[in-house]
């Protein structure tokens, strides 16, 4: 087959767990428009960092933070000037039980729960954000014995969705319905001043350098079509 601009390529992409659902839709759109097929791997950025350092064949990283793309660029494993913020994540305190989480988050203070699921603050930005909310509310020490740590935001969702943790912090993108509202259980969205903004960056990795399709995907997250999908999942832009 002749290789040219029009030939279809496969692109290996590492995607932060919280961005799973929107990225699948964006990848579909991208493939329809360009013919290039993104192959998506989902997980925590810490794991991706370790894998990329060890030569994993990823060409782009859709991260959940800014630190990891930064670090990769410094290590010479990513192309610094391709980096930009594609979304700002939103944190939600959620329960499958209707009425358990009130509209002000007072449930955290009155302690009407046994387990509070939180992604490990050391590993996940959403976990760090949840920790910040608990500290700002002055309940961090009081809820210590009730915290169950998840490895990432997907597992935090799993703990809450299965009912094992009565409440827990998840990403809005995980529970938002097609109408842009949370349709199951009860939830509280902490105001933005309770935690630092979750700025999520995308970056082209060294493996994708000089590959037009990979760069096109990185920049595709800026297009109106992608931004509409990102917004529909509750992210800010």
């Amino acid at each position: 087959m002749p290789s040219g601009v029009a030939s279809a390529d496969e692109i290996q992409v590492a995607v932060a767990a919280n961005f799973t659902a929107p990225m699948q839709k964006i990848a579909e759109e991208f493939e329809r428009e360009t013919g290039h097929k993104p192959l998506l791997a989902f997980g925590t950025v810490g794991k991706f960092y370790a894998q990329i350092r060890s030569g994993a064949p990823f060409e782009a990283l859709v991260s959940s933070d800014q630190d990891t793309p930064d670090k990769l660029a410094r290590d010479g494993l990513a192309v610094a000037d391709t980096r930009y913020t594609y979304a700002i994540g939103k944190l939600v305190l959620w329960s499958v039980a209707p009425g358990l989480v009130d509209s002000k988050g007072d449930v955290l203070k009155n302690g009407a729960f046994q387990h509070l699921a939180l992604a490990n603050p050391k590993l996940a930005v959403y976990g760090a954000a949840g920790q910040e909310v608990l500290k700002k509310l002055g309940v961090w020490d009081a809820v210590q014995s009730k915290i169950v740590l998840a490895e990432n935001i997907t597992q935090s969702y799993q703990f809450v969705a299965s009912g094992n943790a009565e409440i827990g912090f998840v990403a809005l993108s995980q529970i938002i319905g097609p109408g842009g509202k949370i349709e199951k259980g009860s939830a509280w969205t902490p105001p933005a001043d309770l935690y630092p903004p979750i700025e999520q960056d995308v970056i082209l990795l060294s493996r994708g350098k000089g590959r037009a399709a990979a760069l096109a995907l990185v920049n595709y997250l800026k297009t109106d079509k992608a931004r509409a999908i990102i917004r529909a999942y509750g992210y800010q832009l």
């Binding site: 810490g46 387990h115 169950v148 943790a165």
Partner: peptide, 26 residues
């Protein structure tokens, strides 16, 4: 253990989980 443990110190945080955390935290 990772799936049902909840990574709680002195209750469910085993060595294998601790190693995983260290690796993930770089």
């Amino acid at each position: 253990v990772l799936m049902i443990g909840g990574n709680i110190p002195n209750k469910t945080r085993l060595v294998s989980v601790q190693i995983y955390d260290h690796v993930e935290a770089m």
